[in-house]
Design a protein around this nucleic acid. Sequence first.
DNA 1: TAGATTGTTAATCGATTAACAATC
DNA 2: TAGATTGTTAATCGATTAACAATC
Lengths: 234, 234
Amino acid sequence: MTAPRDARSAGDCRPGDARSVPEATVARLATYLRVLSTLADRSITTVSSEELATAAGVNSALLRKDLSFLGSYGIRGVGYEVGTLIEHISRTLGLTVHRAVALIGVGNLGQALAGYAGFASRGFRIAALVDADAGRIGSTIRGLTVRDIRDLDAIVAEHGITIAVLAVPAAAAQEVCNRLVRAGVTSILNFAPVVVSVPPHVDLRKVDLAAELQILSFHETRKAAAALTEVAQA
Amino acid sequence: MTAPRDARSAGDCRPGDARSVPEATVARLATYLRVLSTLADRSITTVSSEELATAAGVNSALLRKDLSFLGSYGIRGVGYEVGTLIEHISRTLGLTVHRAVALIGVGNLGQALAGYAGFASRGFRIAALVDADAGRIGSTIRGLTVRDIRDLDAIVAEHGITIAVLAVPAAAAQEVCNRLVRAGVTSILNFAPVVVSVPPHVDLRKVDLAAELQILSFHETRKAAAALTEVAQA
DNA sequence: TAGATTGTTAATCGATTAACAATC
DNA sequence: TAGATTGTTAATCGATTAACAATC
């Protein structure tokens, strides 16, 4: 049995308690879940840490450590039951309860996100589309009517929205963020290329598309320099 | 002067050498650069580590450490010159040389990426659009004709493409990845929700949109549990 | 039982932070 | 000079890995 780590004032952390799972592990759990789903689709019922780790692109020791945070669900000498793991990871990630997501900003990127099939297939349904542009408000995208951001409080309450995807222009992001927080949203996924700040009780993640390319550009430079060095040595 | 760390067979690493910059630092350099650009737009010429760190959402000690990997470009008692930093970060990230990017897959998400203004404004231009679907090949998106993936080798050679953005269905991603590598692409940004493998000389980054929501969902669960605990204590 | 594989430990590695001497 | 701020050190923290006892 795992000893409680990071125990706080509230008492012990049992395995599976959200508090006891490291951030880096949480991100990988999403990958494991995706891989496990494809195994289940192929009617594979048992998988070893070595097989699952290879499929997920990680070290098998890391995979076993990650899974150990959820509890002890493997069978020594055998492996893990695919169905059992899917169940426990889904519960840990909170995917067994319905979560209403609002998408704010239905411009170029927002429209693509509104139609992104990968959200629905992995447990998320966009419950509301919101924009500030009169030219977009009232239009229908994928069966959803774009609502006015001025009605945000009502929209959030209506659908019980806790998670928002922010796809507005950089200049508007902080202000929209503030509105979301005031309306009661407690998790925000920010696509706007700007640093936004939120109060401590709100979780914020960002996706910076241009930064991803810049990081790859750095590695291109690194590889080019390494190639030059090799030539110089020869 | 920074002592060389991670020196390899090729000899010393001077500051600014791509090899000497940690991965976590590289990712933040992109953010610093973005913030610095907005400062430059506002005609601000000098910034302290405290100010820049706050604007970038990081600890000022971390910012100074990050910048120290590029060299020693600050002025004690004063701060950093915005223009100087922009120049050095741009060079470190390899943004001073033109890099041709190909976008593979112009479906829902791919079309949005093709039109994403944030790429151009931060130094990247999509040089080619590629797809495998006959219904899309030959069509024009943002002034670019969608080309047939069967002509990939020629397209890569024609534009000197080294970076590819992969926005194809999960089922096709590995095969397309293989083709890209064979054609000479050495950096890939993967949006397909599947683990793809590439040879060691190729850099691969992934953006998993649904996983981002799942991570936020985890934190929603964590917060809900914490709230319950508080109630139980009262 | 013999073989296989988990769960856990301890070592290692890399990233972050606080503190402060150096110096503008 | 006095005040401010950098660049760097050393401590801390968190994440990863190898190894192996436990056990199916």
